[in-house]
Amino acid sequence: MPEPLEVLLLDDEPIVGRRLKPALAKIGCAVEVFENPEKALARLQEKEFKIVVTDIRMDDIDGMQVLEFVRERWPESKVIMITGYAMMSLAREAMEKGAFDFIAKPFKPDDLRRVIAKAARALGYTLDFEAAAPEGG
């Protein structure tokens, strides 16, 4: 078993974290789930996560701010944006600010796993993507 890939998942919808944590663990990710952006930022301040998955539209702190913070603090990390408010302008803004990818809600667990696997490859990790999909995705 290779070293697990550390992932921070931030979404103010608790169900997203509850479902994705085990789903991502299957492909070898160690996921820390946050619902509160402030707490997530505090955690990001002290620890580097290779991959950060964040919602965009949240109260108080915007996902874009999280993206900017991560790009500043851990330039190596890949940030994946997930949002229900997907629009071309928002997508382009996220890409410009350095997001690795941008996924519109609703998405399937496999969609995110595929993107994370891609990000992991870009980081030099190999994830067993097939592990999660017994029927072949």
Binding site: E13, I15, V16, R57, G84, K105, P106, P109
Partner: peptide, 17 residues
């Protein structure tokens, strides 16, 4: 329409899992 995406996403994820 955008706000609907949140519950829809929760349903999609849960159903798939």
């Amino acid at each position: 329409a955008h706000e609907l995406n949140n519950p829809l996403n929760n349903i999609t994820l849960t159903a798939h899992v």
